[in-house]
Design a protein around this nucleic acid. Structure first.
Lengths: 363, 363
DNA sequence: GCCTTTTGTGTAACCGGTTACTTAATGACC
DNA sequence: GGTCATTAAGTAACCGGTTACACAAAAGGC
């Protein structure tokens, strides 16, 4: 009846050309009938209470009469009311979600990291906003900008951005934790201790008797790739200064590992170990060796970096990073910052553990 | 100067005890100075324009004078302005993000699905809100409720929820696409054609000469697991009615596959093929067989389902589902629904492709 | 019984954008 | 020169919550 009245009024005004009033009234009419999703005001009306009381029930304030609480609950159930998160975020300036920005990662790394972050975020009762960036600065900026208002904090993994770019791209005042990104005085940064890891593996390969080790590196723009290559050179210089430290450049993809080894073989190079900068390239290398009938590990030892799930199944010797745990750790640190207890930002290195499997076992 | 005035006023009012006015004024003062993140009104003030003009520039309307546009851009840059997504969502009723709700999946399935969805969502310039559920109905409801106002649509994968529960849990009026979930008249549903897949594999195993095939099933509450087990029984009844169709129940985990085969072996059962309901269990089975020195495929053929990346590396015969593509397809369908062109909801079955590898190659 | 707390509820001003409608200014045309 | 169309910019009312403050009623203290 109320709506009928309103609609008549709308018709009249429409005839008179008062389109502004019409739009306004139609908005009112809409919230009155059930066609649109109900708002807190609809609940208040149904429960014959004010919006303040409904809001207090929603937020579990304790100064609400039990009877009132029941009335509100009944009204919410009847209307199928679900609060609007955008409105809530706007008025409280809290989004109850955290944003994750990372590159479209190779292989299983992506899934493992997202899984680790997601679990930790869920444990804190928050949602996860995911955005992948593709090495484009402008896109990275817009991705992080899009998080403004929807997230309370950010976890950023940008191994291919420069330190300066990172600074311009992270919105000012947004609590942010970095993973495997350039060092930055303003933010906590979680990095793998690549150099120490490389040292461990080189020592292992030398101990196993390898004399000509070839390192398959990632693209030098990638921070971890660069550190690993440098770590390889340092380790070789330290532990076996008389041996050559050969480095070839790939791009972390399985295909590049396979291609590089094929090239080596076709050139007739001699080598007894391949140490790739990540597991995917190591798997590619094994593939190439197997194809031409070279035995791993008897003729050539192969090692990787990361310890993705595949590595265990394929018996690949590698450096274990525990990717999921890294993600979870970043979340925990971010939560601390959000709680206001902000210890000085710092660079934390997580150590890589040497995992010896068949691909480098002694003959 | 303006702020100085305001602050004096605040002091006076504070003395007088008008705390309400003080709070209000302090809010005003805050937006005037640079301590807080700038709003559109700050930009308007800096550019000496109205908020409407700033908004028009932001949204690339064409009825803005070029000079005005420049002034706004300059002011935004100077202030480091980033629009607040919550406010924008609230007033436009568009969130420019889509929500994904899925269980904490086994193995690589999770990562692949998220990757596929994320890529497709990014292609449409939207963000991805991720929430994992853990078979708890109330939590599932709250997870989906939390999406209200933050997302324009939902992609839900709930293979362990009943049809009725699903209906109560999906917020009314929210465009939703289902993946591997119970059938539901109201929503588009993307499912794997499990039965046809099982038929393909059983035919392959029989053709290879297997005579006693054992199926390792998942938990029957899981929709796909149930269909696969049923499909196995049907295929066996169809293609080899004289042979036994043995079924053991696992839970999709690698460990359960290993355990089931160990039990079989310790009981002294005879069999020449293991057909697991997913790849992870198949890998567990291979592990168990290898440990006791049974050759795969010479003595026992092993097959799985899903074709996770691991399967290719380990030479596991399986049924390829293309998980990432499924996720992308769900996104595309959701986009169509969001564009308003809403074809009738329907159940679409994606077929599984038989991929024969070493684990079932002829001896 | 009167005054002071306590408790519960309502009112209305925010949060930071968008946009319908209005108005001012400029140009076009007779 | 006056009228009408066009363009550019401004005003203010929304979106749907939260919450400070006001206020009424009930409870407690003397």
């Amino acid at each position: 009846m109320c709506n009928r009245l309103l609609n008549d009024l709308i018709d009249i005004w429409q005839l008179l050309g008062h389109s502004h009033n019409v739009a306004w009234l139609m908005g009112k009419a809409r919230t009155h009938n059930g066609s649109s999703t109900p708002t807190i005001r609809d609940v208040a009306r149904a429960a014959e209470l004010s919006v303040a009381s409904v809001s207090r029930v929603l937020n579990r304030h304790d100064n609400v009469h039990p009877e009132t609480r029941d009335k509100v609950h009944r009204a919410m159930r009847d209307l199928g009311y679900v609060p609007n998160a955008a409105a809530r975020s706007l008025s409280t300036a809290k989004a109850n979600a955290i944003g994750v920005v990372l590159p479209d990662l190779y292989g299983e790394y992506f899934g493992e990291l997202v899984r680790g972050i997601d679990r930790a975020v869920g444990k804190h009762g928050k949602l996860l906003l995911l955005s992948t960036i593709h090495a484009d600065l402008a896109l990275a900026a817009s991705a992080m900008g899009a998080m403004r208002g929807r997230t309370d904090g950010l976890i950023v993994m940008a191994p291919e951005l420069s330190r300066a770019d990172l600074d311009t791209v992270i919105p000012a005042g947004m609590p942010t934790v970095l993973i495997n990104s350039p060092e930055d005085a303003a933010h906590f940064n979680l990095r793998v201790d690549n150099r120490a890891g490389m040292m461990l593996m080189v020592r292992h390969l030398l101990a196993r008797g390898c004399r000509s080790i070839i390192h398959l590196g990632g693209r030098p723009e990638n921070l971890d790739a660069a550190e690993r290559t440098e770590g390889f050179r340092m380790a070789m210089a330290d532990l076996a200064p008389d041996l050559a430290a050969d480095v070839l450049q790939g791009d972390f993809s399985e295909e590049s590992g396979e291609r590089l080894v094929q090239q080596l073989l076709s050139k007739g190079s001699r080598f007894d170990a391949i140490f790739a900068a990540n597991d995917m390239m190591a798997l590619g290398a094994i593939q190439a060796l197997k194809t031409v009938g070279i035995s791993v590990p008897d003729e050539v030892a192969v090692a990787g970096f990361d310890d993705i799930p595949l590595a265990r199944h394929l018996g690949l010797t590698t450096l274990a990073v525990n990717i999921a745990a890294t993600g979870a750790m970043a979340v925990e640190r971010l939560m601390i910052e959000l709680a206001g207890e902000a210890p000085a930002p710092q660079l934390v290195r997580t150590s890589a553990r040497l995992v010896v499997r068949e691909s480098t076992s002694r003959r």
